[in-house]
Amino acid sequence: MLRKLIKYEWKDVYKVGLLLVGALALATLVGFLATQTPMWSELFGESGSQMNDLSESLLWIVGFFAFFLYTMMLMGVVYGIFIYLTVHFYKTMYTDEGYLLHTLPVTKHQILISKILVSSLWVYIIYIAMLLSLAIFALGFVGGVTSSTFPELLQQIAVFLESVWPEMLREMGPDGVSLLIHYAGSMGLLMLLGIPSGLLCIFGATSLGQLFPKHRVLMSILCYAGIMIAEAMITGILGSVISAAAIMGASAVESFSLGLHSLAIRYDVSLFIHLLMAVGLYMVSYYVTSRKLNMD
């Protein structure tokens, strides 16, 4: 049944998901065109800033607005997917549409898991599309400033990495490399698990709001804000304690290295707390849908 639920959940969501990917493609085109205006080369290129005539001024304005539009569209798509998925979750779970879902011969775990999986997949897709968009923009930007062609740019990046990377690793030493791996691992996990756990927090807050007799949508938003504040406070306090404990009594040179290590540990702490909150809020969603469901 889980597979069937996932199939229909995907069918429900994919149109809006594709629409947002399309919007992102359009935004990327706008952003890329913005990088091709003379504004960037004049601001960051070797020639310096100079506006010679009216047409160039107009290109500046167009370039600026295209860049502005690009950033706005990018933000809109990222926030848009979260807003859409939250509204979709709320509507299919707690409004009239939920009559169908909650009378299916499936468990509440299956319903929740199908929603989390499909929603997470769409956020991953949007994030990957966003990274591609940023890469295209960055390449366009560097190309606009340096007047290099696209293959030349890629070659320059490869050469740069080839020459700098081994030297950088040598300079860092074994401790530095292990710290880098620690950072990269923590960041990677945070990015990978942060999406489903973030969605679990949003869905949990939406479910918590259903426990109130009135103004359930407003209460859901307030619950989410409360959860985020609580998480930030716990992470901040625990992280500070860990950092302080790590560098206490160490010399200035040692404390720099230990400080960097404790920073990496803080990432781990925040990831751990985030995952803990996500598990807790999944249980809240399960509890509300199985024990406290009140379909008006």
């Binding site: 939920g98 009559y99 909650h102 009378t103 024990r291 406290k292 469901l293 009140n294 379909m295």
Partner: peptide, 9 residues
């Protein structure tokens, strides 16, 4: 009816 169908607990 809603309780019969699990829409209300």
């Amino acid at each position: 009816i809603k309780m019969l169908n699990g829409l209300l607990v």
